[in-house]
Design a protein around this nucleic acid. Structure first.
Lengths: 225, 225, 225, 225
DNA sequence: AATGAATGAGTTTTCATTCAT
DNA sequence: TATGAATGAAAACTCATTCAT
């Protein structure tokens, strides 16, 4: 009578069930992103999803598990997008490939900042809601693999400095892109500027690309010594 | 009935009054940092501060205003630290000066991540709790000013590429340093590594310094085209 | 999540639901009448009604809305009683009809002074809790209509002075009856008599009837000039 | 160290003390009138009076005693006004004297409805805050005495029906005048008219005078039989 | 699975009153 | 007396969760 998760239904109304789960997860994602795990309300999620509150408990168990499932679905989305990008993106010319990836990440994060918010909130709980299901180890991550291939080519061609740690560089991309959007209000206030304005966003995008590309330059690398 | 702030007392018991406010703010800072505005409990803050709960309402009005005051005190701290650093740090040699600043910011954020957590949470509320009191516009910010001076010298000496936007570069520093610590749990999980381990932290610190320094190289800048 | 009112249930448990609302309203009526909106306690109402406090919030929203609903139910009762009286009362002979009405109002108010107390308290809040639902405009009021008919007959028969404003006269009845019961303690003190004593009540009733009837006399009216 | 009341000071600052008491009582009167004993706030009274909250406790003991003192001062005012009116008003011609008294009461109550509100609230507490100090027994009441004299004259002159109970008639005046102002919001709502509008007030005043005068007519009295 | 109602433990806030100087 | 600070009890309201149908 109280099933934890449920992706194995075979009954006729499976369609509806999946719909309920899906719509609740969608609403939960935006609510949790907006207000955090502590600030979001089960009542409100139920209302906005147009389902009875009890349905949430039936399908997800409790609030924490709903958060878990929501996080999971975020990671699934991320993985799917990463895979899709890696499958389509050319590896060469190397510098172009890197630049494309940076721009893609920036744009993706700008568009889907909900996911970022949600994941950032999870850090408050020290990763307690992370499941094995949703995670990909970076070794498997299609984007890191892609970048690794690109770097290999680029280093060989002398376009990219050798010795740069791919995972660290990937984190640089993520960090620079995420930070801008997740701290836009406080930084705007401190800087007394509207960082959400389209031209400010474009300027930041341009800068991040240039910054990251410059750091890959073989000449620069020698300079750092 | 409701005292705003109070830095003009001259009576003997000034110590106690300030103590109450101060200790509450200290506790509030760590509680809000740890659990967020929504997750923190006024009761718990009062308990941990060893004061009567009503004392919090007497001194700060309500939970939101307490959060406001706490944010304020964070910004004051930041300002004070920035000012102190800028006053003491040499401008030349330029590359050393930049490197020092980066390392300083990394270390500061590692040590005082509470403040960062608090400010990041405020973005959830769209800057609603920011007061004019606590803020510094970046034009006045001692660190940005310092960096500006360093860049000027560095550009003249041909050590730093010209045309780099100081504020954007400053944001790069902040972004790279903050991201690592504020997302350490989820990134650790995704990467299947313990990013909190001392050697991982050291490695990241080294990388960030190298990354940022490389991006300043005049040679690299030419490379970006 | 928050059910407004609910008079359309068809399920078997309708009884219970209505019971909860009904019993809460009953208790609320006497508590609010006794202590006023400000003085009544939600906790106490819940206790006396034998329901969980949250049930009150579930059904009524908040204390103010509970007061609103209570007021509403009072006005419904009044309307029902007015309608019942008007339906049964003969219009003629006119003076008898008026006398009956006065006595009925006096007796009703003596018996149901709760309602009066409640409505009087609402004046403190400037009618803020009045809803359209509960109200009857006096033009529709069965008692005023009845009185109008009686006056018409009475005037034609020369038993009642012509030119007397029916609504004003109706207010006279209400005022005289209500004042006695709602100010019984202070007036008793000032007069150093016990106005609540049965014989005092009877004397007042007799006086009010005589007073009002006298004022209707055609002869008296001429006297006023 | 905690004096109950205090009207026997002989120190130099007696002036100030009386001022404090006076201003607190004034503010308390309007606050209690507006919000009732339960709804008024000691904090707010202190604030509006511009005195320290503790001063209220020093001078009046507690909230209930403050209410008591406020009630007291209201009754003192009433007595003073009654005495002044009775001293100045002519007894004859009788009907004019009655009419004047009615109009005076109506106008007084319209102007000083605060006092009425306060006293009406006290009925909620069953006269528990009434002190002997503030009260006058009706036998002493200058207005009732005055009215008694007027009736005597009027009866002798055949202008006023004999056998009318003076105290009952006095209550009629009070009831009709007070009811209008103390129930103006709810009655306005029920009647769908604005009873606070100047012309409505004037109409009511005119009606009340006529109503009461008519009831005194010897001819009418015979009619009542 | 869906729904309305219920519930108990919390959570913020209020308020009269007292303390200490 | 005057004042800022403190305090504990209570009050309104919230919220995750469960019940019963």
């Amino acid at each position: 009578m109280k099933p934890g998760k449920r992706n194995d239904l075979t009954t006729a109304d499976r369609g509806e069930v999946l719909d309920t789960r899906r719509i609740v997860l969608d609403v939960a994602r935006s609510e949790f992103a907006l207000k955090g795990l502590a600030g979001a309300r089960v009542d409100e999620i139920a209302d906005k999803a147009g389902v009875n509150k009890q349905a949430i408990y039936y399908h997800f168990g409790n609030k924490d598990d709903l958060f878990r499932a929501t996080l999971d679905s975020c990671y699934e989305d991320i993985r799917a997008q990463n895979k899709a990008y890696a499958a389509a993106a050319p590896v060469t010319p190397a510098r172009n490939a890197v630049r494309s990836l940076i721009e893609h990440m920036f744009d993706r994060i700008e568009k889907r900042s909900e996911i970022v918010q949600l994941i950032m909130d999870e850090n408050r709980y020290q990763g307690r809601h992370l499941t094995n299901t949703g995670l990909i180890s970076s070794s498997d991550d299609p984007l890191v693999d892609h970048l690794r291939a690109v770097f290999k080519v680029g280093e060989a061609a002398g376009e990219i400095a050798s010795g740069i740690d791919v995972e660290q560089f990937f984190m640089d991309i993520i960090a620079l892109c995420i930070f801008y959007f997740s701290n836009i209000y406080t930084v705007s206030a401190v800087m007394d500027r509207d960082l959400a304005a389209p031209r400010a966003v474009r300027a930041r995008r341009r800068h991040i690309v240039r910054q990251l590309m410059a750091s890959l330059s073989p000449a620069a690398s020698a300079d750092v010594g």
